[in-house]
Design a protein around this nucleic acid. Sequence first.
DNA 1: CAGGCACCTTGATTCAGGTCAAGCCGCGGC
DNA 2: GCCGCGGCTTGACCTGAATCAAGGTGCCTG
Lengths: 229, 229
Amino acid sequence: MPTSRELTIQQLRQHDLFAALTESQWADIVPHTHLRAFAAGQRLFSHGDPAHEFFLLREGVVKLYRVSAGGQEKVMRLIRSGMTYAESVMFMDEPRYPVHAEGVDAGVLVAIESAAYLGILRESFDVCRCVMARMTARLHANWDEIEALTLQNSRYRVVSYLLGLVPADAAGEARVTLPSRKALIAAQLAATPETLSRILHALCDEGLIEIHDYEVRIPDLAALRRGLR
Amino acid sequence: MPTSRELTIQQLRQHDLFAALTESQWADIVPHTHLRAFAAGQRLFSHGDPAHEFFLLREGVVKLYRVSAGGQEKVMRLIRSGMTYAESVMFMDEPRYPVHAEGVDAGVLVAIESAAYLGILRESFDVCRCVMARMTARLHANWDEIEALTLQNSRYRVVSYLLGLVPADAAGEARVTLPSRKALIAAQLAATPETLSRILHALCDEGLIEIHDYEVRIPDLAALRRGLR
DNA sequence: CAGGCACCTTGATTCAGGTCAAGCCGCGGC
DNA sequence: GCCGCGGCTTGACCTGAATCAAGGTGCCTG
């Protein structure tokens, strides 16, 4: 029976960032990966820390966020199992993490030493290309977010968030379950929990959704899309 | 006397994205670059257009922006002479421009065929590295912007914008000149021209800055930094 | 020189969304 | 059972910034 480490290593091998590696490149990098468990609420790294590693999340939930002088938090991204993060940081001249990272639900992550991976990149253009494609995607996602923050109101953001949760192949009706505490979702949408609560309530009143705890039923996807405003 | 094209080509050669090329790589790519003039107000490409080229701006000003359903514009970036843009788009599987681009002041740009440049990347890791470093920088600038938009008020954004204009080596007092029409600056800061005007006025009243047209005098940089709120 | 236009400013008004405060509910521990 | 606590909702209130509407001011053109 494979150990937990072996399982994780399999998962890593299949990830975008590693799938294009040759066997020998892969063998080179494995010793530079480290399994690490973390608790809910545990700080994983801080904004400004020197960055020597990037991460694949194997289990649990991690939030990447910033804090204003006044103490408000904005969750930049929520990381869930199978996602990598902080991989773009390694290209900086003096790499430092640009956000705080903290465990939301306890879990396990794999830390990959940036220097080792960079060495691999040097010899494989395909891998470079994958990395660049991911960075581009992230870049565009950020632009979308900036657009949503400045051009749209919070109702719009909530509705698009809900629509983003439904599987692409769904049509007509859909059911989704909220993937985390509502306060966290609110922080991602740049709103307060109160506002999120009110908007969801309003959407219920309009018959566009039904909520029971974390389960949301969308009786008519097309109607909700029209309800974007 | 060198032609305009020769001058531009020199400039291109010195740019980050091209500086690391070998002579032969450089010779390969030159035939795939195209000088192109544009007028103020001219649309250069549209959100969603297939992207086969990226650009170096040689003269003039270009804005990259999005438009909401209601018709509001948000300027994502202002491009000035010497800057490249749309270079990250070429790594997408089906490359399409993620924003609109329009001339603000008439000028001249160099269009570089993405396919040709990608071919070069394939053989030079150093070039790859430069590109990745730039993309990372852009990525982090976006995080900063998202933070400023969500965690901070518009006064904060205006003040940091002003501080961003002063040369890094300035101390004590500084003079800067606003690099474009105030309405455009406002759009970049996600504010209306009215709001920008009021904030600048308030800063004057507090003695933190003095404005005459497009010239801004900052009598005490440290005081302005404290005035961030 | 008059008129028109682009850009900016100023004031009055409105409104989305944040803040503060109270209350509700489900849950685990004693 | 009762208590305390964390997460969510609800209501009352406040405020920052957008919107709407009127002027300035400088510049170009006929």
